[in-house]
Computed example of a mutant assay.
Amino acid sequence: MSVPDDHPALDRLAEFGASDGLADFAEFLRVCAELTGFDEPELRATGMAQEHHRTTLAHRVRDDHALVHLWYVGAWPGEEPTSARAYDQGLVWRTFHAAPPGSAAPGHGSWAEAPRGGEKR
């Protein structure tokens, strides 16, 4: 996701560099909603808001790309996902309307059905 340089959330992040305004959870969610394109209730529904807030506070350098990466992938850039749940709840899967590989069983007897677009042999 690319955020235009004149995006209001970026101006807010620049302000936070000095005052650490992202320490306020409500402000953190508001800024993240602007950056990710998901509204605050959707971000809360992932169950990752508090964990992502803690992860953000643990990193000195904060920019829009790192926050978007954290929400979409479940990991701070250059690091492993903060938890298996963070990976499973990444916004990337909601964007694709899919489940992350290996996180959800396809269902009993699914092996007996041909894959979508596939032919039975």
Rank of each mutant, 00 (worst) to 15 (best):
S2Q: 15
V3I: 15
P4V: 07
D5Q: 12
D6C: 08
D6H: 14
D6F: 12
D6I: 12
H7D: 13
H7R: 10
H7M: 09
H7S: 08
P8Q: 07
A9Q: 12
L10Y: 09
L10H: 11
D11N: 14
R12E: 15
L13K: 12
L13I: 15
A14W: 14
A14G: 10
A14I: 15
E15K: 14
E15Q: 15
F16P: 04
F16M: 14
G17T: 09
A18G: 10
S19D: 14
S19T: 14
S19Q: 11
D20C: 03
G21R: 02
L22A: 03
L22R: 06
L22Q: 04
A23Q: 14
F25K: 05
F25A: 07
A26Y: 13
A26Q: 13
F28N: 00
F28W: 02
L29F: 08
R30W: 15
R30T: 14
R30I: 07
V31K: 10
A33P: 10
E34N: 10
E34I: 01
L35Y: 09
T36D: 02
G37P: 04
G37Y: 05
G37W: 06
G37C: 06
F38N: 09
D39M: 07
E40R: 08
P41Q: 04
E42H: 13
L43H: 01
L43W: 02
A45S: 11
A45K: 10
T46M: 02
T46L: 02
G47S: 07
G47Q: 09
M48I: 03
A49G: 00
E51Q: 12
E51A: 13
H52G: 07
H53Y: 01
H53D: 01
H53F: 01
R54I: 05
T55A: 13
T56F: 01
L57D: 03
L57Y: 00
H59A: 00
H59K: 01
R60L: 11
R62M: 05
D64H: 14
H65Q: 15
H65T: 15
A66T: 11
L67K: 10
V68E: 09
V68S: 05
Y72I: 01
Y72M: 08
Y72N: 05
V73E: 09
V73K: 05
G74F: 01
G74D: 05
A75Q: 04
G78H: 08
G78K: 03
E79P: 06
T82F: 12
T82V: 11
T82H: 11
S83D: 04
S83Q: 03
A84H: 04
R85Q: 12
Y87R: 05
Y87Q: 04
Y87W: 10
Q89F: 08
Q89V: 09
L91S: 03
V92H: 15
W93C: 04
R94V: 00
H97I: 01
A98I: 00
P100Q: 08
P101T: 01
P101L: 00
P101Q: 02
G102C: 00
G102F: 00
S103A: 03
A104M: 09
A104S: 07
A104Y: 03
A104C: 06
A104I: 12
P106A: 04
P106R: 07
G107S: 00
G107M: 00
H108G: 07
W111T: 04
W111F: 09
A112V: 07
E113Q: 10
E113V: 11
A114F: 09
A114P: 14
P115Q: 03
P115S: 03
P115Y: 03
R116A: 08
G117L: 02
G117A: 03
G118S: 14
G118P: 08
E119N: 10
R121A: 12
R121G: 09
